[in-house]
Amino acid sequence: MVRYQRWLQAGAFYFLVAITGSLLPGTYYVTLLNLIGLHIIIVLGLNLLMGYAGQISLGHAAFFGLGAYTSAILTTTYKVDPVLGLLAGLLLSGLVAVVVGIPALKLKGYYLAMATLGFGIIVAIAFQQMDWLTGGPSGFMGIPPFRLLGWSFKTPTTGFFFVWTVVGLILFLSLNIVDSRIGRALRAIHDSETAALAMGVDAQRLKLLIFVVSALYASLAGSLLAHTTNFIAPSSFGFMFSIKLVTMVVVGGMASIWGSLLGAAVLTILPELLAVFHDLEVVIFGLILMVVMIFLPRGLVRGLLDLWEFRQRKQQGR
């Protein structure tokens, strides 16, 4: 049973994707679902870093942007194959993550938050100011769709299948990482770094490793964004988006892979529903973050489960 569990999960996941993809009406929903998929990829990585290893990052939008711009510039300006563009993005983001991570991850708590925040802001400014390369504040247009082995993902629906295939893959990798020697060591660092060190866990190296992994996830999502929307602008990769990502992790539930799916979905749909209150978006996100942290500190999934179990017990008691 347990042995085939992953295959069953994978089967169910892709069955759902196939059904949804073929039934969805209109471009609007497809585009929204694609965005959710991309957010899920980033949030899964960020949750490995925050929820499991216990290290915060307020700069992950920067890696999303690095991936997006590398893909955009290479494939549009230099006509490079999208696959190579994506790989170049991963390489660049990975290198940047190592360079930023080595000093930053020596810091803890607020100081780490500040360091990553600063990094995110610097990168966002670079996207704005280097307009000869990035197109500046008005954005980067005309990015070609992704091509792979002769397939071209031109329409939103084909884009949907592509994005969600990748989501499934990343989900599979993440579940495996969490459920392994490495995932266990990360959780140990989170609970007591002193004890983890004494047990022989090289905490510094592992923190860096997972920081790089989360940067790669974000970069991958960025490349996919560039190719599915064909247009990117620096405003998508700023400080506000980093905060949104953290909110998605917290709302879904720290150290909960399935929670990440829900957190990313809910907080991607919510702004669409609240489009009327556009100016208040920041306030509403802040409010959600506060309410969840106070009333559902373990996130939406765990919180709702607790509530349900409490109900069950109460009914049985009577």
Binding site: I182, D191, S192, A198, V201, A255
Partner: peptide
């Protein structure tokens, strides 16, 4: 200094970290 959010057996499994290599 236990890993409080982990189960008892998982705590011991962390002890095996240094002797394993995955």
């Amino acid at each position: 200094q236990l890993f409080g959010h982990m189960t008892v057996v998982e705590n011991v499994m962390v002890g095996r970290h240094i002797r394993t290599r995955a």
